[in-house]
Amino acid sequence: MAALPKRIIKETERLVSDPVPGITAIPSEENLRYFEVTIEGPSSSPYAEGEFKLELYLPDDYPMCAPKVRFLTRIYHPNIDKLGRICLDVLKDNWSPALQIRTVLLSIQALLGAPNPDDPLANDVAEDWKKDEKRAIEVAREWTAKYAVKS
């Protein structure tokens, strides 16, 4: 394992000492590049009241490349597929080393509040969303109540 750069240590420390409201990120004891993340659904969204588990991994090239993030909790969202993969520009081409774990997680939280069915990852969900947004939001709410129960 490549050694842990100062930046990662700094970020981790700050995540603990100065946490983002509604977001937790705890590094694994075995691998300090691996984080267990929870994100609360934004209040105005169908995901409100839900707590979503994610995993976040910092590759060796971080911060030159983006962290790898994936939802563990099932979620009904046009930009998040069955496997929990997230379609988010800053996690792909729009990554900048100036971004951090905290900003990435905030972006994900924002994505929950603003689904973008025009750039879908889960095509079926995106279609549902486009066909009947209300129904889709209802399903999303159901899923949240079903899967994303706060522990």
């Binding site: 090239d61 030159m64 490349c65 081409d93 900048s96 080393p97 100036a98 971004l99």
Partner: peptide, 22 residues
């Protein structure tokens, strides 16, 4: 850092942009 960033982007055949303002 910035040289490394540029080199990384170049290696991945992506345009190098300023991390802060692109």
């Amino acid at each position: 850092c910035i040289l490394e960033h540029i080199a990384f982007q170049t290696k991945n055949k992506r345009p190098a942009t300023c991390p802060n303002c692109r």
